[in-house]
Every structure is written in structure tokens, then in C-alpha cells.
Computed example of a mutant assay.
Amino acid sequence: MPDLNALIGRAASVLAYLPWWAESLIVIVACCAVVMPLHGVAYRALKRAVASKSLFWRSLVSRTHGPSRLGLIVVAISIASTTVHLSWEVRIALNQILLVAFVTLTGWCCATALHIATVIYLRRFKLDAEDNLLARKHFTQMRILERAAVTLVGLITVSVALMTFEPVRQYGVSLLASAGAAGLILGLAMQPVLSNLVAGIQIAITQPIRIEDAVIVENEWGWVEEITSTYVVVRLWDWRRLVLPLTYFIQKPFQNWTRDGASLIGSVFLYVDHRAPVAQMREKLSEIAAATPLWDGKVVNLQVSDAKESTMEVRMLVSARNAPQAWDLRCVIREAMITWLQAEHPEALPRHRTEWVGSEEPGLRRADGQRIAA
């Protein structure tokens, strides 16, 4: 078996005849080839170590497999760069690239940890539950705060990466010292972005809207589907999407049907003749509501809300568990009541009356002049 020292000496003599860049490339590739299996062994050992830990640590280790491997490669290249013959300029540039890469990987891991913590926290809440008010509250808060935190992590990461460049740091200091007007112009230019960020924080704290809230905005009815750091996506009833800036929900009025709860009272209006049996209609409304599972069993009422010269306005109130069921219940009540009136009380349907005044009604005449009896 050949001597190991002899092999190393022979390899060093071969590398001595190569250009500096080829020598550096071979050494860096060799270090990376050694690091990869080491990372695999260390990663498997770490997974076994956190197997009994909480879900957060298990997920964090699983999700940071790629960043940790890249970080170990960065460390290996940094160590290898000290053993090869590089010019001063190349060594400085390589160290700068490695430092920026390490800062970026750190920010990446922090953003991943924030996302994992948010997902684990929200797993205890179900948006598809019947009474999902608490779930919508926490989903809205955590999603907005997560985006704000990730944005902050990104800004800090970029700032730290730029601070590693000496020329950029000097320019930043000089601009900070003499950029009063420039700062004012920049602030004015970023006013829409900053106002939306502030509005997002206000929405997360005060919560005028939440995820899956039923709202009416711009005369359109739908549900809040997504709240980002700058805009809100409303899923309309016909599957269209209405995109509005965050400031809209701070500065303009809108209707929120599920602000304090999902239950709603739906109203149904009918216009009937004055001879309509109101008492029987009230009993029939209770019967129809009790026969449908859409009614939550809380509110059912019928009142004559107005009377005009030819019709009566009858208002029926029924309650449901949420907005879609309230809409369907209103349609069921309207159809069933009209069908019942047509079958049982046709005289209650609205009609127009005409009365002839005088001793001789003009009546209608045929073509030969004979009068047609009314």
C-alpha cells in the first residue's frame, strides 16, 4: 500500500504546475466533496436528537436541510480559501461573497422559523368550523404579523449584507448626514407603501376585517380571502376577486356581516292584497322555517311593515348560522310562501281593481255597435 505522505507530496507537486485558479478550484471542490457526506451524517444525527422534541424543532430541522448544507459549504470554502494561493484582491472578493452568503442564509433560516411557528400556532384553529369567529381572529392576526416580521427580517438581512461593503457603508453615512431633502423626497415617494404597512398593523390590532369575513364592499358581496401587507383580496359570490388596498378598510365605510359572529338575520319582503290572512301566514312561516335545516331556531317573525293603496308589505325575518345559509333560507322562505298563497289563498295575491262610476257604464262594444256586458 503506497505511503500516504508520498501521495500527498505527489499531489502537491502536481498542483504546483497548475495555474492558481485551477489549483484553487480543485481544492475548493475537494473540500465540498468532503463536506457533503459529513453534512449527511450530522443531519441524520440531528434529526434523531430532535425526534423527541416539540413539533417546532422537528419541522425546523426538516425545513432547514438545504440552508444548513449551503452554510456548511460556505464554511468549507472559507477554510479552503486560506490554504490556496490567491491574490489579495481575489481573496477579499471571495471572503465578501461568502460573508454575504452566510448573512443571507441566516435571514432565510429566521424567516423559515417564523413561518413554522405561525403554522404550528394556527393548527389549533379550524376555519371550516361552524362558529369560526375565534379562528378567523387568530388567522388574521398571525398572517399579518408573520408578513410584517418576514419583511422586517428581510430588511435587516439586506441592511447587514450592505454594511459588509465598505464603500456602500461610507456612502450611506454621507447620505444620512446630508440627505434631509432626499429623505423627504423618498418619504413622499414611499407614502402609499408606508400607509399600507401602517394600515396592516392597524387591521391586525383592531381587526375590522378577518380572514373569511363576509363583507360588502363597492356594492359587491363576498368573503375576505387573503390579507397581505399591502392589499386585501375579496372572493366575490360569483368567484370573481376584488383587490383593494389596505387603506380602503381604514378610510372608507363597508359592511362586515360576521364582525362579532357568523349568525345573521335575513329579511324577506312580500307584497300581498289587503285580504291576505296575516295570522295564517305567520303560522305558515314558522312551519316552513322549522322544516328546513337552514334555520338555526332563534328568530322567526312576520309583520305588516307597510300598507299602500293597493298592497300590503309583509316583512318576514328568519335567522341562520352564517351568511350563505341566510341567503339560501331567504330564497326557500320566499318560494314556499308564494307557492302556499297560490294554492291556498289566491285572493291574497296582489291585483289591480277597476270600478266604473255612474249610472251607465260605457262598457265595451263590438264592431256592429252592440254593447258587451261587463
Score class of each variant (00 low, 15 high):
R282E: 02
R282N: 04
E283N: 11
K284W: 01
K284L: 00
K284F: 01
L285V: 15
L285A: 11
S286Y: 12
E287P: 00
E287Q: 15
A289Y: 06
A289T: 09
A289M: 10
A289G: 05
A289L: 08
A290N: 12
A290D: 10
A290M: 08
T292K: 07
L294G: 02
W295T: 04
W295V: 03
D296V: 06
G297N: 02
K298N: 07
K298V: 09
V299F: 14
V299R: 13
V299C: 11
N301A: 08
N301D: 12
L302W: 00
V304L: 01
V304C: 01
V304S: 00
D306M: 09
A307H: 02
A307Q: 07
K308F: 12
S310L: 08
S310F: 05
S310I: 10
T311F: 15
T311V: 15
T311W: 14
M312F: 04
E313L: 12
V314A: 03
V314C: 08
M316C: 15
M316Y: 07
V318C: 14
V318W: 03
S319R: 05
S319A: 13
S319W: 09
A320M: 11
A320H: 02
A320G: 11
R321G: 03
R321Y: 07
R321M: 05
N322A: 02
A323T: 09
P324E: 13
P324G: 03
Q325L: 08
D328F: 04
L329Y: 12
L329R: 09
L329F: 14
L329N: 07
L329T: 10
L329K: 10
R330K: 10
R330M: 14
R330N: 11
V332W: 01
V332C: 02
V332L: 04
I333L: 13
I333H: 01
I333D: 00
E335D: 13
E335H: 07
E335W: 05
A336C: 06
M337F: 07
I338P: 00
T339N: 06
T339S: 12
W340N: 00
W340F: 03
W340S: 00
L341D: 00
Q342P: 03
Q342I: 14
Q342V: 14
Q342F: 06
A343L: 13
A343P: 00
E344V: 02
E344C: 00
E344N: 03
A348L: 00
L349F: 04
L349I: 10
P350Q: 11
P350D: 06
R351C: 07
R351E: 02
R351L: 09
H352I: 09
H352L: 08
R353D: 03
R353T: 11
R353L: 11
T354P: 01
T354G: 06
E355I: 15
E355L: 15
E355S: 06
V357E: 08
V357F: 14
V357P: 01
G358W: 03
E361P: 15
E361G: 15
E361T: 13
G363L: 02
L364N: 03
R365K: 13
R365M: 08
R365S: 05
R365F: 14
R366Q: 04
R366A: 09
A367I: 15
A367E: 15
